[in-house]
């Protein structure tokens, strides 16, 4: 989904990597925002049924938005982006 223009003053533009492909993000954004802005809604597949999941509660409670950042499993909604970060969806 697209970033809303004009509502917020964003931080510096940084280059990150999403599943090996270059992507852009702005400091102050979460990994979830960077993924949504890159057009990604499904962040992972579930263990038991292989069903797609993405962001749901955005306040760190539901654990649906789990992704890997530099190898570590984190909640995308609670993890701020940083330059050079490597995000892997599962």
């Amino acid at each position: 989904m697209s970033r809303v223009e004009g509502a917020l003053v964003r931080g510096a533009r940084v280059a990150i990597e999403i599943d090996g492909a270059p992507a852009e993000a702005f400091l102050g954004e979460t990994v979830a925002t960077a993924l949504l802005a890159a057009g990604r809604r499904a962040f992972r597949r579930t263990d038991r049924r292989g069903a797609p999941r993405g962001l749901y509660c955005a306040i760190g409670l539901c654990f649906d938005c789990l992704v890997r950042v530099d190898g570590r499993r984190v909640r995308a909604c609670q993890t701020p982006v940083a330059a050079g970060m490597r995000v892997t969806t599962e």
């Binding site: 989904m1 697209s2 970033r3 809303v4 509502a7 917020l8 964003r10 954004e29 979460t30 979830a32 925002t33 949504l36 802005a37 809604r41 499904a42 962040f43 069903a51 797609p52 999941r53 993405g54 962001l55 749901y56 509660c57 955005a58 306040i59 649906d64 909604c77």
Partner: peptide
């Protein structure tokens, strides 16, 4: 309700107000 693209009302507020990204068109 578990499909990507379903959000809580609170999530929508976080995205719009503090992240500047739309949950959908």
């Amino acid at each position: 309700w578990t499909l990507p693209g379903v959000y809580t009302a609170g999530a929508s507020q976080v995205l719009v107000k503090s992240q500047g990204v739309l949950p959908g068109r």
